[in-house]
Design a protein around this nucleic acid. Sequence first.
RNA 1: GCCGAUAUAGCUCAGCUGGUAGAGCAACGCAUUCGUAAUGCGUAGGUCAGCGGUUCAAGUCCGCUUAUCGGCUCCA
Length: 614
Amino acid sequence: MIMNEVSDALHRIRHSLAHVLAQAVQRYRPGTKLGFGPAIADGFYYDFLLPEPITDEDLPKVQKIMVEIIKAKQEFSTEELSIPDAVKRIEDMGEPYKAEYAQELATKQGLETLSFYSNGDFVDMCEGPHVENTRDIPRNAFKLHNIAGAYWRGDEKNQMLTRIYGWAFEDKGQLHTYVKARTDAVKRDHRKLGNELDIYVIDENVGPGLPLWLPNGTVIIDQLQKLAEQFEFSDNYERVRTPVLTKGSLYEASGHLELYKDAMFPAMKLGDESENGDEYYLRPMCCPHHHIVFSSRPRSYRELPLRLAEYGHTFRNERSGSLHGLTRVRAMCMNDAHIYCTKEQVRDEFVRVLSLHKRYYDLLGLDDYFFRLSMWDPEDPKGKEKYVDDPAAWEYSTEVVREAMKESNLPYREVVGEAAFYGPKIDTQFMTVGLKEFTVSTTQLDFAVPQRFVDHGIDCTYVDNNGEKQVPYVIHRAPLSTHERFASFLIERFGGAMPTWLAPTQVRLLPVGADFEAYADKVCAELRKHFIRAEVDHSSDSLGKKIRSGTVSKTPNLLVLGANEVEDESVTVRRYGIKEQRTYPVAEFAQRLLTEIKTRKHVKEWDDADSIME
RNA sequence: GCCGAUAUAGCUCAGCUGGUAGAGCAACGCAUUCGUAAUGCGUAGGUCAGCGGUUCAAGUCCGCUUAUCGGCUCCA
């Protein structure tokens, strides 16, 4: 499902389309200035400074001009100009952003020439490559689909430009397939399903980004939490519980007030304001608390690795424009844990954490992921501000994480310059149903914060076998991310039809008529004795309506109960998504269902159903 | 936070160029007691997001605020 590297031909087509787009927009809105216009994962975009705004209604018109340009069979030609000539050329073109970038290429990157591509009356400073002629661009395999704002060079201090996005593929069929996938994704959007299936609400009386889990959603997160407790128990984690509110001084020690304050809710003043009033904060992360638990008494090297786990509530004052359903919220509950270990243990612990990730994904039937290893950039001129200043520790930790990654034999890619302040990190990347790359969880190695605690007089150390105090390495890990983020991901993956073990209602019993309600109640009570989440449809609807309602609710098992079933103490089962039904004795049905729930298998149809039918 | 768009009943949406709101589903009631994806009839439900302006008159036009959506930035 993860997109493969695109072919060179498609890349050329997309990049050339960006030029044709710019050409068309300059024709449509004379005076338009150009920003950047690259090929991207599903097409291309171009950033413009427009003399007057453009709207969605203009897109088909621009697209039409693009088709005309393509039909005109314009030759792409290229030329290399020396820096002075290039600068003069750009001045003639009257392009301020291009001029700025040309300056940078010449001064900072030390280029001696710059290349220009032209087709028809259009010229752009660009390193290529392009198609040979606009006729090489399939004119029915691209579509302008979106207008958005984007800062020049991605920096919010700069001018906001107008970005026009297009999808582009090698033929009409591929475009059609892609557009269909995007359209289908809308139906599986967790915000839509979350509303339809009564999973959560975000209410203006509570506040933006503060979701309320309804009973159905609560079942899902309770089950995820149970799963995590079992897996973590078997990996020798210990559970702790820590408060959501904390004195500011702790966040001075951890460095959050210095580096992370923008994402924290403002301080609360507690106590007498005139004297000794301490400032308190809602916590943005659990780690400082776990560090305090670790520091609460002297620790021996024999206790390490010490793994402290908590499903912890945290609060982040996310910017209003970034809030998004359950995937970007301001109050969340994380599958958090911190592993305290010696320098020598880091590698094995990392391997163990990666394998824990794999156990979750295998269980859930998820296999289309890769890990993104984010590393520091020793060459970064701003490195001193971006990364903790300890090159030796960076080198060691980067190498040890890379080794763990290799040993785990899991797919991964390295990204230089994306590390966190405190150490390298590993993100787990999936594709969403909308075919966008999506980070589910982050694992981070931290060799700096415990030392900061020590520097602030908090004894975050252990005693080694020489009786010397040592500062531990810490691994921050949250394979199931936050309830909010993980549930939203699963809802979209399963299209709201959760595997039985996660389903809010596991069984809905549908009496064929009023005479059979007593039997339905009896069977329901029997199932509930086994903690199966069963309920009876007591409405006066027709059977057809009950089946429809049950199906729409995506309940994995619907039981039809009438005279036949009363007769031989059985149930007739409709599994979600399967038209044909099976009849089982009540006890056998319960047993099969319990096995399915206990093993957390995601099966649509029970294997040996045929033989049971006889 | 920034750029752009949107905001009508619990949900999905109508409401033409300004003349004081409408449907389907859901809910509720009555009748129906039904064998495999919608039984029929009825009832109730809206300060048209909020505030201000233009106008004889605003759901409709304008401004501000809030929220949401698509991006940017940020990030779990």
